[in-house]
Design a protein around this nucleic acid. Structure first.
Length: 705
DNA sequence: CCGGTCACTTAGAAAGAGTCCA
DNA sequence: TGGACTCTTTCTAAGTGACCGG
């Protein structure tokens, strides 16, 4: 969709045009493109003009290469972290064997964490349930009170769940003023904790909120999912801050665990989480100079790989047939990492979900079919990687032999190498090179290529350009296997669109049938003006979903039902004495048609009447050639739009475009493309991404990755 | 070399905000 | 006009890879 919806966006657009599109005449087209759209769609008005136009430090302008990059800052001031509110008991019981059980606050809190997730996948996950229940039993055993609770299956958390639902509902029903007050409060907090002073500049802090307690929500088959993630106290937190800065005040009655002044790291605070013993950090926001610098560095490193890639590929291709087993394994792994954008695959512990990357692939993760290799394994976040691919014969032979050597499921395919070794080898080929650089390189490179392949010109509409961009984006997302859960009601949504499309096709066809006989008397030249061929093509039946009489009856029944609803509403809301009669009359005829239709439908199976019945109010009458023709044109446009929407939706159902846009595609490719095609970068980078990619916004229109 | 630690990037889910459409 | 749907932001889990000490 092409929508310029609100004031700020329009504002941004103008500013970006002014700031980074130096040639004014060129931006004229783009401005026009936006203007009409903007005028048409703009509705919501919001004040908020600021968006901090403060004289910004443009760090990317003075990158004098190799400064000491172990020191990350010289001045650092911040306000510390924000703790979640203390627990407030609600006193809602759970049921055990149907009997109410009231819980002391600490236990009630824990149980509440579970009750809130009752209707989610976590709540239904046996591991999650078991881990949670063990935690609960532990807490109960430590309590002075005696609880009757012994078995999970005899618990009923519904009362608490329903209580939470009710609360959510109430929150939704809050008055405007209350909501505004809440927002104000949030703003105040952000103002205080959301910023720090870094080398004299005010920069945004990312996650200054301490993670609230809850149940650990591990992904996939994580053995610890459902474990109690405890409340974090000031005593567990280490603050990192400038020597001269004022140390932030810990909550009353508490002390920071530690305060350090480490200039070689970028975090402001750190603590250890209790479930997996992982370290959690408070970092600056993605749009900060520190993050921006390393982002730029990442892409520059990937571009550096461009200069070496031919040699490196030659190198590992040759090594595929090395007599040394280790070398052969390394080369094969590199081939997979380079060709299929696999992750390195560090080894993992037993207390984590069983997921793999390249080096940790096992016997069972590859099979061989029709001369191709099938990869099927769970990768990061337990996302399934399934790919049936053709590979170089040497790679095929190697994989077969590695698998044979592994003998049985559970054993490593690449038994002689690991990520450390692989990366060591890579860094010997190019300084700073590691496995993950290939993902960045291939993603950005693919994106640029795909974008060039697209059949668009600067004259193309915004819609076409957006489509082209997203297609290229999608190629990258597929390459990197970035997935998302299929939306809850996806198939319903799909068939809804498909149904709408069928309706449009039908309407288009009957209008064509109506018009056609009227064209025969026209002169040949005139007839050419009303060429129906493309429209006839468009409204041809989808072979998978032909228009049957049965469908037709449902279609009209649907139309009738909707019309009736509309009229009923009208009757209820603004019926006056004068129009009440006509409304009633219409209603009566509609419902009589509806019952006629229903009985016709009933009779369908028995009698095979050839001509479907059409309710009177939906029969068409011919008016004029021009009118009829323009109706067909309109319908055609809608058919085409609906068709693309359908294809797009289906292709997008499991592919997540965001991850590659945020992490893998050099933003300068997008910026330069936007400049070349005269389309505002806002179309592809929402506010936070523009913030994150500030450093890329002035990329030249001839920028090449 | 190896295992552990540390710091950082990358990831999908969930929450929240905005928009669309009947 | 409000409820469904979509897009954006936030949240925090899950990776990568360097380094360190034995």
């Amino acid at each position: 969709m092409v929508v310029v919806t609100s004031e700020p966006r329009e504002d941004n657009f103008k500013r970006v045009i002014k700031r980074s599109y130096s040639d004014d005449s060129e931006s004229e087209v783009a401005r026009k493109k936006i203007k009409t759209e903007g005028e048409k769609k703009r509705r919501v008005k919001r004040e908020q003009k600021e968006e901090e136009e403060a004289e910004e430090y443009e760090w990317w302008r003075d990158q004098n290469g190799d400064k000491d990059d172990t020191i990350r800052w010289t001045q650092l001031e911040h306000q510390g972290v924000l703790f979640p509110p203390e627990y407030v008991p609600h006193g809602v019981p759970i049921l055990y064997d149907g009997e109410k059980v009231y819980l002391e606050p600490e236990i009630e809190e824990l149980v509440g964490f579970f009750a809130a997730l009752l209707e989610t996948e976590h709540g239904a996950n046996p591991t999650f349930q078991r881990n949670f229940f063990n935690e609960l039993k532990l807490l109960m055993s430590k309590s002075k009170r005696k609880y009757p609770i012994k078995e999970f299956s005899r618990c009923d958390f519904r009362p608490m769940y329903e209580y939470f639902q009710k609360q959510k509902e109430e929150k939704k029903q809050m008055s405007k003023e209350e909501k505004a007050a809440l927002l104000e409060e949030r703003k105040m907090i952000e103002e205080k904790y959301g910023y720090c002073i870094l080398d004299g500049r005010r920069e945004k802090v990312g996650n200054f909120r301490i993670e609230p307690p809850g149940l650990f929500r591990g992904r996939g088959a994580h053995p610890k999912t459902g474990c109690y993630k405890r409340r974090v106290r000031a005593e567990q937190i280490t603050i990192n801050i400038g020597k001269d800065a004022k140390i932030p005040e810990p909550p009353k009655g508490s002390k920071w665990g530690n305060v350090i002044h480490d200039q070689t790291v970028t975090w402001l605070a750190m603590w250890k989480e209790n479930v997996n013993d992982n370290t959690k950090y408070v970092f600056l926001a993605a749009g900060s100079s520190l993050k921006g610098q390393s982002d730029l560095k990442k892409y520059e490193k990937a571009r550096e790989l461009k200069k070496h890639i031919v040699r490196i590929r030659k190198d590992y291709m040759a090594a595929l047939t090395s007599s040394d087993g280790k070398t052969r394994q390394r080369a094969t792994a590199l081939y997979l990492i380079d060709r299929f954008a696999l992750r390195a695959g560090n080894e993992k512990g037993d207390d984590q979900a069983d997921t793999v990357g390249c080096c940790s692939l096992r016997y069972e993760h590859v099979t061989f079919e029709d001369g191709k290799v099938v990869f099927d394994f769970l990768g990061k976040d337990s996302i399934r990687y399934y790919n049936k691919v053709e590979v170089h014969p040497a790679v095929y032979r190697n994989l077969v032999s590695f698998q044979r050597a592994a003998k049985t499921p559970g054993n490593l395919l690449f038994s002689l190498i690991n990520t450390v070794e692989l990366n060591k080898h890579l860094s010997s080929l190019m300084p700073g090179l590691s496995a993950k650089v290939f993902r960045t390189y291939n993603a950005s490179h693919t994106f640029q290529q795909e974008l060039e392949k697209q059949d668009v010109t600067p004259a193309s509409s915004i819609h076409e350009l957006t489509l082209a961009y997203n297609r290229a984006n999608r190629q990258v997302a597929v390459l990197c296997n970035h997935q998302r859960a299929v939306a809850k009601n996806f198939s319903g949504q799909l068939s809804k669109i498909a149904d709408r499309l069928m309706g449009l096709r039908y309407e288009c066809r009957r209008h064509i049938d109506l018009l056609k006989p009227n064209l025969t008397d026209l002169s040949l030249a005139d007839r050419a003006k009303y060429d129906l061929a493309p429209f006839e093509q468009a409204c041809r039946d989808d072979p998978d979903r032909p228009i049957t009489t049965e469908w037709l009856y449902s279609y009209f029944a649907d139309l009738l039902t909707k019309d009736i609803e509309r009229l009923e509403k009208k009757k209820a809301s603004d019926a006056t004495q004068s129009n009440l009669d006509s409304i009633e009359e219409k209603l009566a005829s509609l419902s009589s048609e509806l019952s006629t239709l229903n009985s016709k439908k009933e009779a369908l199976s028995s009698s095979k009447s050839s001509k479907p019945y059409i309710p009177e109010m939906y029969r068409l009458t011919f008016n004029s050639i021009d009118k009829s023709f323009s109706t067909i044109q309109r319908l055609y446009t809608r058919i085409v739009a609906t068709k693309t929407a359908l294809v797009d939706k289906d292709e997008n159902k499991t592919t997540a475009l965001g991850t590659s846009k945020i992490n893998y595609i050099d933003p300068r490719i997008t910026v330069s493309w936007c400049k070349k095609f005269d389309i505002p970068v806002e179309k592809f980078f929402p506010k936070t991404l523009r913030e994150k990619f500030k450093w890329a916004m002035h990329a030249d229109k001839n920028f090449k990755f």
